[in-house]
C-alpha cells in the first residue's frame, strides 16, 4: 500500500508524537482547571473585604419559603447593612436602595431572586444575572417592572407597592385583551383565540413591547390590531400593561399558601375581566374599545349573547360560561357559590 516503512524512524516519530499528545492533554487540563477553580464570588468578596475591612464571608445562602436556595448575598454583601449606607459603596456592595417595606427581611426570608429574577443559585455575576427561561442577560427587574414579581405571591393591588401592576391588570380587562387572550383553561390559542398568554411573562420585555406596538413584528401573520397609536400619549399605560404581562408566568409556588389561593383567581377570567380596585373580581365588566364593538359578532360575545347583539350592555345577567368560571372566584367569595 505504501512505500516500505522505515521502522526505526517510525518508532521515533511515534514517541515524539506521544509526548506531544500528552503535553496537549496536560495543557487542556490546565485550561479547564483555570476556568473551573476561579468562581466569580471569591474576587468580589476580596474587593468587599478591601473596601470595608472585613474578612471574606464565604458562600452565603438563604432558603426561601418556597424551598428555593438563593445565594445572591454572597456577592451583594451589604444588602442588609444600614450602617454602610453612608459609605457610598459601588454597586454590588451597597445596602438595598429603598427600605423593603412589606419584606423588611426579604434577603433572609425569600432571597433576592424571588423578586429580581435571575439564577439565585449561581455564584458568579455572569451566571446569576440571566433569565433562566430565555437565557437573556441582566433580567434584574427594577421599578416599575419589579411589581410583576409581586404577583408570584400576591394579587394585584393586594399589598401596597403593586399599584402599577394593578393598573396594568385593569387595562388588560378594560382594553378587552382578555376577549382574544383569556387567561383561563380555554385560552390555549387556536383558530378562535389569540395565543395563550398564561406564560407570556417568560418572554423578554422588548419582545412584549414589540408585540403590543406592532404584532406583526414578531409574527408575520398576526391578525391582532396594532396599538402603535393607542399608547402614544400614554407611555405610562403601556408600561403598566407590560408590567402585568410580565407577571404572567403563573408558576405554581409550593409552600406559599397565599400564592395557591391567588393562582386560581389570576387564572380565572372573572378577575381578568372584572378586576376591581382591590385587584379582586369585584369590578364590572367593561371595555370601550371601538374595534371590539365593531366585531362583536365575530368575537366570542356570540357564545354568551346569541344572535345579533346590538349592544348587550354591561349587566344582562350571567351567561353559563361565566357561571361555571365563577367557581374559581368562590375560593374567596363565599357569595359567588
Amino acid at each position: 500500500m505504501s512505500a516500505e516503512r522505515d521502522l526505526p524512524t517510525d518508532a521515533r516519530r511515534l514517541r515524539i508524537g506521544l509526548l506531544l499528545a500528552a503535553c496537549a492533554l496536560l495543557t487542556v487540563m490546565v485550561l479547564a482547571a483555570v476556568r473551573a477553580l476561579r468562581p466569580g464570588f471569591v474576587e468580589i468578596q476580596a474587593r468587599f473585604a478591601g473596601q470595608v475591612g472585613e474578612a471574606a464571608a464565604g458562600v452565603r445562602q438563604v432558603q426561601s419559603c418556597r424551598g428555593e436556595l438563593d445565594r445572591c448575598t454572597t456577592c451583594h454583601l451589604g444588602v442588609e447593612r444600614e450602617d454602610l449606607r453612608a459609605a457610598g459603596l459601588p454597586p454590588p456592595f451597597g445596602p438595598h436602595p429603598e427600605r423593603l417595606g412589606h419584606h423588611q427581611r426579604a434577603h433572609v426570608e425569600i432571597g433576592c431572586s424571588a423578586c429580581h429574577g435571575g439564577v439565585g443559585r449561581a455564584l458568579n455575576s455572569d451566571d446569576a444575572h440571566v433569565n433562566a427561561a430565555t437565557g437573556e442577560r441582566d433580567p434584574l427587574m427594577r421599578e416599575p417592572h419589579i411589581q410583576a414579581a409581586c404577583a408570584r405571591c400576591h394579587l394585584p393591588g393586594e399589598v401596597p407597592g403593586t399599584e402599577r401592576l394593578l393598573h396594568g391588570a385593569r387595562l388588560y380587562a378594560e382594553l378587552g385583551c382578555a376577549v382574544c387572550h383569556p387567561l383561563g383553561r380555554e385560552g390555549l390559542g387556536g383558530a378562535d383565540y389569540g395565543p395563550d398568554l398564561r406564560t407570556i411573562g417568560r418572554k423578554s420585555l422588548g419582545y412584549l413591547r414589540d408585540s403590543l406596538i406592532d404584532p406583526s413584528a414578531n409574527f408575520a401573520g398576526s391578525t391582532m390590531p396594532a396599538f402603535d397609536r393607542s399608547f402614544e400619549d400614554h407611555p405610562e399605560a403601556l408600561a403598566d400593561l407590560l408590567v402585568y404581562l410580565e407577571s404572567l408566568p403563573l408558576e405554581p409556588a409550593p409552600g406559599c399558601r397565599l400564592r395557591e389561593r391567588n393562582a386560581g383567581l389570576l387564572a380565572a377570567p372573572c378577575a381578568s375581566c372584572h378586576a376591581g380596585t382591590a385587584g379582586n373580581a369585584a369590578g364590572r365588566f367593561r371595555h370601550g374599545c371601538v374595534w371590539i364593538r365593531e366585531r362583536r359578532d365575530a368575537l366570542r360575545c356570540g357564545r354568551c349573547h346569541p344572535g345579533t347583539v346590538p349592544d348587550p350592555g354591561p349587566d344582562k345577567g350571567f351567561c353559563p360560561r361565566i357561571q361555571q368560571e365563577r367557581k374559581a372566584c368562590s375560593a374567596c367569595h363565599d357569595a359567588a357559590r
Binding site: L7, A11, L14, G17, A21, A24, V28
Partner: peptide, 16 residues
C-alpha cells in the same frame, strides 16, 4: 511500538 503508540496518540488526542 508501531500499533500501540499510534493508538495511544489517538487516545490522548481524543481526550484532549
Amino acid at each position: 511500538p508501531h500499533l500501540l503508540l499510534r493508538e495511544a496518540i489517538l487516545v490522548l488526542c481524543a481526550l484532549a
